[in-house]
């Protein structure tokens, strides 16, 4: 179950590489949205602009995956809770670790296939 969900993540990423502007991505889409032209032009532009690190993009997507999204919201809730109080001993380290542990696992599956 979980496996297929992460496979989907992979697929969307690959599709986005070839024909961008289909879904607005927060980080990966930045460069591509600015151009707005056809796919070939954008690919050339991308080469000129320098390489884009695949890890933050994957991490972002993995954070949205059904498996990790709950942990992410727990982390964000914790952040808001702690930041809203002036005097608290609580930290969100464990929440961050739980979320990142999940997202890391998902990133590790596909990251190296995008590197040389």
């Amino acid at each position: 179950m979980a496996f297929t969900e992460e496979e989907e993540v992979t697929l969307t990423e690959e599709v986005e590489d070839e024909e961008p502007t289909e879904e607005p991505e927060e980080e990966g889409g930045d460069v591509e949205e600015e151009e707005g032209g056809n796919a070939e032009e954008e690919e050339e532009e991308e080469e000129e602009e320098g390489p884009i690190d695949p890890k933050p993009i994957l991490f972002e997507e993995c954070g949205e995956s059904p498996k990790c999204a709950p942990l992410k919201s727990v982390y964000e809730t914790c952040n808001d809770r702690v930041n809203s109080r002036s005097n608290t001993e609580e930290t969100c380290t464990q929440e961050l670790f739980d979320f990142m542990h999940c997202a890391d696992k998902c990133v590790a599956k596909t990251l190296f296939s995008r590197l040389k």
């Binding site: 001993e89 609580e90 930290t91 380290t93 464990q94 961050l96 670790f97 990142m100 542990h101 890391d104 696992k105 990133v107 590790a108 599956k109 990251l111 190296f112 040389k116």
Partner: peptide
């Protein structure tokens, strides 16, 4: 100070290194 201690550090995930296999050499490039 009293606080719930979190783990000391985050454990890294296992990445699929090309030299992982039982007969795989390191990537010399």
């Amino acid at each position: 100070m009293l606080r719930v201690e979190a783990d000391d550090q985050l454990h890294p995930p296992h990445y699929p290194w090309s030299h992982d296999g039982i007969l795989s050499s390191l990537d010399h490039a």
